[in-house]
Structure formats: structure tokens, C-alpha cells
């Protein structure tokens, strides 16, 4: 664990270059390039606005786009992490450096995108005049989500080195995870039915999904009122950090064999 922080701090420049490279490669051959990071969330908000109007979908727009943007951060990290190691096989087999830099720089590149989306989101929220909650807590939530994303990315990038099935398993898991998380619905909307089915434990189960608490926290910070389950957010945060620690330990144990497998 300490080794990880030592490795990362002694290779700051490499990390910076890899983050830049990840961002650069994503927008290579595109005319608007980096501008897409801003255009993406703007279009997203517009399209969901039209969709909500047409479908009479029972959810308010700020809450929906907050959920989608936060979910996208996780989904992008998961998708990219599949290739964080195997896509850099030429580096892993030809040079010696702390391998953890590869998935970390990939997650950080996605974090840059996410932060820019957040700015667009916050501007939008200001325009539609939501009543903000304790915005001061936002960095805590973002860092927790970052820990979750990194932990998961470390696990997935490692698994994909040894088992190429990971890619297919992951797409299924991500779909299930998406619907288990209150992204396109509100927690308050499903809980009565869930409690009816499995009793009072339903709340604990629902919030043991780290993304549930993270989304709930974002919504609480952005739209203070009418949030269900705020007192259970701590469970989700704890799970996020546990996954982060598991990810780091797992990765550090497995990385010695990367050179042989690639």
C-alpha cells in the first residue's frame, strides 16, 4: 500500500505524460478534439431534456443528468481499464517501471474528463436555479468515487491480463450494476417495493452498492431536498474504500506475472 504511493510519487512525470497521452489518443483524428469533453455533457443534457419532455418520464432533469454523468465516469474507467495493461503490452514487456502507473494514469485521464463534465453540469444547475446543498463536501465525494474507480480498474485490468473473458463478463456486470444503481430512477421510488419484498435489510443491501451512495451524495450536494437514504451513504463510501484497498493489494500481488503473460 505504501509502496504504491511511493511508486506513484517517484514517477510523477511519467504519470503526467501518460495522462496526457491517454487524453491525446482519445481525440486523435478528431477535428474538435478536446472540445468534445465539453460538448459531450452539453449534448447529453439537451437530449435528456427532450427525452424527459416527450416521454413524460417521472424524474427531474438535474437529478437524472447528475446520475448519468457520475455513472459515465465509472463506466468509462471500467471500459478503458480492460486495456490499461494489455493495451500497453509493448511498454510492460520492454521497460521496467511500476505497473500501477498504467491503470492509474488511465483513471486520472478520465478524471480530467469527468471534472470538465462536472463544470458543465454545475453551470447548467446554476442556470436552472437548483438550490445547492453543502457544496463543500463535493471534493470528498469525487475523491471517494475516484478511489472506487481506481480500485475497480486495478482489478479489471489485472483480470484481463490473465483471462480475456473479462471483457464479456464486464459488459454484463455493468448492465446489471447500472440498473441496481439509482441512475435513471430515484431511490425513493424503488425502496417501498424492495422493502416489501426483502424486509428492512433492503436499504442496507441497496446502499452496499457503492455507486448508490455516491450518486445519492452528489444529488444531496447539488439538490439538497428530497433525498432518500442519506444516512446510509456512509456504507457506500466504506465499500468504495474497501474496494480500493482490495484493488491495490490484488494488483501489486499479480503484477510480477504481467511480463510473462503478455
Amino acid at each position: 500500500m505504501f509502496k504504491m504511493f511511493k511508486d506513484l510519487s517517484s514517477h510523477k512525470e511519467l504519470m503526467l505524460i501518460l495522462v496526457q497521452r491517454n487524453i491525446k489518443i482519445r481525440y486523435k483524428n478528431s477535428v474538435l478534439g478536446f472540445l468534445w469533453t465539453l460538448l459531450g455533457p452539453i449534448f447529453l443534457i439537451c437530449i435528456y431534456a427532450i427525452f424527459l419532455n416527450l416521454m413524460k418520464f417521472d424524474m427531474n432533469l438535474p437529478s437524472l443528468v447528475t446520475g448519468i454523468i457520475a455513472w459515465q465516469f465509472l463506466a468509462m474507467c471500467m471500459g478503458d481499464s480492460l486495456h490499461a495493461i494489455i493495451g500497453n503490452a509493448n511498454l510492460v514487456t520492454k521497460a521496467s517501471f511500476p505497473r500501477i502507473i498504467l491503470p492509474t494514469s488511465m483513471v486520472l485521464a478520465n478524471t480530467v474528463n469527468f471534472l470538465l463534465s462536472m463544470i458543465v453540469l454545475i453551470i447548467y444547475l446554476i442556470i436552472v436555479k437548483v438550490s445547492f446543498g453543502p457544496l463543500i463536501l463535493l471534493p470528498v465525494i469525487i475523491i471517494t468515487q475516484l478511489a472506487l474507480c481506481l480500485g475497480m480498474a486495478l482489478i479489471i485490468s489485472t483480470l484481463n491480463v490473465f483471462f480475456r473473458d473479462t471483457e464479456h463478463v464486464l459488459s454484463t456486470i455493468m448492465l446489471a450494476w447500472f440498473f441496481l444503481t439509482p441512475v435513471i430512477y430515484e431511490t425513493g421510488y424503488v425502496m417501498p417495493r424492495a422493502t416489501e419484498l426483502i424486509g428492512p435489510a433492503a436499504y442496507f443491501l441497496f446502499f452496499s452498492n457503492p455507486m448508490t451512495g455516491i450518486l445519492t451524495a452528489y444529488r444531496a450536494v447539488f439538490m439538497s431536498s428530497g433525498i432518500t437514504g442519506l444516512h446510509l451513504v456512509g456504507i457506500s463510501f466504506a465499500v468504495s474504500w474497501v474496494l480500493f484497498v482490495i484493488g491495490v493489494i490484488f494488483f501489486q500481488k499479480a503484477q510480477a506475472r504481467f511480463g510473462d503473460e503478455l
Binding site: 497521452r21 489518443i25 500497453n88 509493448n90 514487456t93 520492454k94 521497460a95
Partner: peptide, 14 residues
């Protein structure tokens, strides 16, 4: 500094 199997890990798009 090492030159293993040539190319030293260059990325084709950079």
C-alpha cells in the same frame, strides 16, 4: 537503459 526486442515501447500514434 534497455533496448529489448527493439523499439523500446514506442506508441504508434505518438
Amino acid at each position: 537503459s534497455c533496448l529489448l526486442e527493439l523499439g523500446a515501447g514506442f506508441h504508434p500514434d505518438l
